[in-house]
Nucleic acid binder design. Structure first.
Length: 424
DNA sequence: TCTGGGGTCCTAGGACCC
DNA sequence: TCTGGGGTCCTAGGACCC
């Protein structure tokens, strides 16, 4: 039986989410910016047509934006995450197996279906009709090819958002692949693309036909797998949808550079608290954490200082207070006065399941129960009353370091105060 | 005069993804 | 003036052990 893996990908997802609540922006140039209003992370088709590349700093676009009346939004992750969940829940019902790959795309198993292309068209209509989000679907025998099929579906409007490689004969497929730059392949980044081009491999067909041994020798096992997948043999299997994260990171750039240790401490406590919430949500414990701070790497005339310290926790824990204590200890070790810091971050590492804690003779079980109960209460209040309602005092109240968000839309779907208003 | 080799574990850093 | 954040996987090299 022919393997059929589908990749469903939302079209410029963040922009589509914003347009959902401001339909007047349909057909108009729109971008969504990264945290701190730093760079462009989602572009509408109209903005792509203006030649604006991904990840370009927003301040470099000021003139162009004015000339073409581009509407910009700050990132509204509460909104995007909620809409993503709705899309994924709907898609999960339309296939026997789903792997959510990122906030805006997932793989669906379609092997054995009578007509995967027709099913894909129904999926597309259902998401559009029920949730208002446009998606494209690519189908092929491997994940890597399905990604390419999705790319083709997006580039060729006449396909109406669906491209099934399995429905093409090999001559047609190869001709198609010959017209796609090798850098479009999933797993081929900027560096590899340059090296491949130097080897005379510029398009996808050339990579597909290159000898496996040569690819392996020059690029290693990862690229070898990509090569195998391009030849139609699946070696990246559908992942476990419920697999817990092996690492949980929370990091942010500051709205303005900060120098004082006290401000860094507030930020680190805030980030550690967010990471700890995520850790408890997946019912895990962390056995170590990393804390890091960084000066501005784009500043030419100031020295770059970006220390990172690993702090073992002794006992694995999910208690915000213990994690914060460790993070502060690490921060004070790496902090150097007199430098202008631009960013700080905390990563929880060595993550294990909550029930897998090794027991020892000296466990204080009563203390552990108190800790778990306190954290549960904290999370319950914050879930119900809004994130950050109850937090450690050390996070501070003024937050001079908080990020810039000058173009924020409302949290239309997750906050009672910010619901969309039909009429006033 | 001559000074092993192989396995494992850990860490840092790179490349890539969205 | 203003340049994101959160992940995964792999590799190289050092420490350590027998």
């Amino acid at each position: 039986m022919t393997r059929a893996i589908a990749l469903v990908d939302c079209n410029n997802f963040y922009v589509s989410c914003e347009r959902l609540f401001q339909p007047a922006l349909e057909g108009r140039p729109v971008v969504v910016l990264s945290n701190n209003d730093g760079c462009v992370v989602s572009r509408s088709a109209e903005v792509k047509a203006l030649g604006v590349p991904m990840a370009v700093p927003w301040f470099q676009l000021r003139d162009l934006a004015k000339r073409h009346d581009i509407t910009a939004f700050s990132s509204n992750y509460a909104l995007y995450a909620d809409l993503s969940e709705r899309v994924m829940r709907l898609l999960a019902r339309l296939a026997p197996h789903q792997e959510v790959y990122s906030i805006d795309e997932c793989f669906l198993e379609m092997t054995g279906m009578a007509d995967p292309g027709a099913h894909a068209r129904q999926i597309r209509q259902a998401v559009r009709r029920d949730l208002g989000i446009p998606v494209c679907v690519g189908i092929a025998t491997s994940k890597t090819l399905a990604k390419l099929a999705n790319h083709v579906a997006k580039k060729h409007p006449e396909l109406e958002g669906v491209c099934d490689f399995n429905a093409l004969d090999s001559v047609t497929l190869d001709a198609l692949l010959a017209g796609i730059a090798v850098g479009e392949v999933w797993g081929v980044g900027r560096k590899s693309q340059l090296r491949l081009q130097e080897m005379g491999i510029a398009d996808v067909l050339a990579l597909k036909r290159a000898p496996a041994k040569r690819i392996r020798a020059e690029f290693g096992v990862v690229m070898e797998r990509t090569h195998t997948e391009l030849n139609g043999i699946a070696c990246l299997e559908m992942g476990d949808p419920a697999a817990p994260r092996q690492q949980i990171i929370c990091s942010r750039s500051f709205g303005a550079p900060i120098t004082a240790l006290a401000d860094l401490e507030q930020a680190v406590i805030a980030y550690t608290s967010r990471a700890a919430e995520k850790l408890r949500r997946q019912h895990s414990l962390a056995a170590s954490l990393q804390v890091y701070i960084r000066t501005n790497p784009h500043q030419q005339n100031a020295p770059l200082y970006q220390p990172l310290l690993n702090v073992p926790l002794g006992e694995p824990t999910a208690d915000t207070r213990l994690l914060c204590r460790a993070a502060l200890y690490g921060l004070r070790r790496i902090y150097r006065p007199g430098m202008a810091y631009q960013k700080a971050g905390v990563a929880l590492c060595d993550i294990l399941p909550g029930d897998a804690r090794p027991r020892s003779l000296f466990d204080d079980e009563a203390a552990e129960r108190r800790s778990a109960a306190l954290m549960e209460t904290l999370d319950a209040i914050n879930r119900r009353m809004g994130s950050g309602t109850v937090r450690l005092l050390g996070e501070g109240v003024h937050k001079g370091w908080a990020m810039k968000r000058g173009h924020m839309s409302q949290r239309f779907t997750t906050e009672w105060d910010e619901l969309a208003v039909a009429r006033t």
